[in-house]
Amino acid sequence: MSPRQKRQLSLEVNGEPYELLVEPHWLLVDVLRDQLHLTGTKIGCGIGVCGACTVLVDGQAVSSCLALAVDAHGKAVTTIEGLAREGRLHPIQQAFIACGGFQCGFCTPGMIMGAKELLDRNPAPTEEEIRAGLSGNLCRCTGYVKIIESVQVAVRLLQEEMAGEAGAPVSPGPGRHAAVGSGQGGAR
């Protein structure tokens, strides 16, 4: 194999600008994982079906296993690592913890990024819209019931947060394992 020419790739990842040298055939998911060490983005199927590699590119959910890294030139990429702000979990992340919306956790980063796009587009989805919106993200552990519930709770948390910007913010909870509330609180 002959040495290949690398190309300059400028992009923003989770708000940080990066200048990288990449080979044209490198996939976005591999650059995120192997070059930037953002291993929260997973590889589940390699063909865009399972959704474990879901990231947002300019706000749109894409399969990073089907995207060439060079194609992200000049774009803003958000991965799971970019959701929590200043140590505080995003409401969707809080909701997944509170409702038990994951088990093994391998689909979870992609699932949460898929949910992020869904709620960015539609802040108050019906249950049917949640099901349709998340159908490209496979989960083998939960049977989806608690994932749907998590997204419904996230909707509420996001609404409370919007309202709370004038008032009290949602507490991340005192407990080390807790997401919201007292640490004993589930979704119901």
Binding site: G48, V49, A61, V62, S63, A132, G133, S135, N137
Partner: peptide, 12 residues
């Protein structure tokens, strides 16, 4: 179009 694959694939 809403029946095609997943939202993510339809984005691409």
């Amino acid at each position: 179009l809403q029946l095609v694959a997943s939202p993510r694939i339809r984005n691409m």
